[in-house]
């Protein structure tokens, strides 16, 4: 059902990108006492930019027949290139750049982002259901 895919596609892909971000931050929290570990994060703006440039590129392939696979590519297809590192506020002796307070705040934010994504998806589903019922 390509039209339903298009309808839900972006939100479900966004939710999976955000759950990937949760993974990365939980990796930071887990590695809080690993010497030399560099804290990572996922730049959602970068992911979105990749997606936009892939879908709106004039020179890219166009799906002109029904059996063509969409050339736009899914959101978060090339996710590892959007991973960023950041400099810590207070450097530590063992070159570990995880700062627990910062990481906890980031994790909370990422959880809220994920929940927002799920909420959007849920609203879309209930909207579609309403339209199908025709009440």
């Amino acid at each position: 059902m390509p039209s339903l895919d298009r309808y839900f596609g972006f939100n479900s892909a966004a939710a999976s990108v955000k759950s990937r971000r949760l993974e990365i931050i939980s990796g930071n929290i887990t590695n809080a006492s690993t010497p030399g570990y560099k804290a990572k994060d996922l730049d959602f703006a970068k992911v979105l930019k990749q997606y936009n440039s892939a879908t709106s590129n004039a020179g890219s392939m166009q799906a002109t027949k029904a059996k063509h696979i969409g050339a736009g590519g899914a959101l978060g297809q090339n996710i590892n290139s959007a991973i960023t590192y950041y400099t810590p506020l207070n450097p530590s002796l063992d070159n570990n750049t995880v700062e627990m307070g910062v990481e906890q705040a980031r994790f909370g934010r990422a959880v809220a982002d994920y929940q927002a994504s799920i909420q959007f998806l849920e609203n879309k589903i209930s909207g579609m259901r309403k339209a199908l019922r025709g009440e």
Binding site: S16, S19, E23, S26, T30
Partner: peptide, 11 residues
């Protein structure tokens, strides 16, 4: 991916 999240925290 939640299983992965949990196994990361598990390690």
């Amino acid at each position: 991916s939640f299983e992965r999240l949990m196994s990361i925290a598990g390690t």
